[in-house]
Amino acid sequence: MHFLEIIKNLSLVQWAFYFLSILTLYGALGTILSKNPIHSVIYLVVTFFSISGIYIMLNAQFLAAVNVIVYAGAIMVLFLFVLMFLNLKEESTEMKTSPMLIAAVSTGLLLGLILIATIRKAEITRVNYNDFDPNTGLIETLGMVLYKNYMLPFELVSVLFLVAMSGAILLGKREKGESHF
């Protein structure tokens, strides 16, 4: 009864948050549990979209847009391409419950329990709605901070990209005498 009271009194924002969270969890579980790899990718796209929705709720509009474009748009499409190349069949084997699996799941649940306990005990400061700067998530503000305060990590990330690019080519390049797909 008390539960129904709570549900009736939820504001729109809270409804949106709960809906998006459940969608995220559904997408995540679907990714892991589905047998067809293409279905897994689609579920992951669902997850990314719902996370972008949560970003919008947190006033990070640019981040939401970038998330959709880069993750759901570029990376997941890349995944789909590779999957179509590999032409994977549906998995027909059942997942065995090995001791490792049980240990992993219980560790994960334990971690979740600890995190929930910590968050419950923690003192969470609320945002002051009056002082809040509406420009926070906009791309101009983000750009200013990125190019002024965080310029050095921004530039050094380029080194990381260079490593990743040359590494990918080094590892993926077809040698003389290797077989085709």
Binding site: Y150, P153, L156, V159, L160, V163, A164, G167, L170, L171
Partner: peptide, 29 residues
């Protein structure tokens, strides 16, 4: 090595992350 050099001189946690990743990804390759 750039990543390693960043990791011993960082003052900001983001720099530590960037350095850690540069070092690690280089070594994965």
């Amino acid at each position: 090595l750039v990543g390693a050099l960043i990791m011993v001189s960082f003052q900001n946690l983001l720099m530590l992350f960037v350095g850690l990743e540069i070092l690690s990804v280089g070594l994965y390759v």
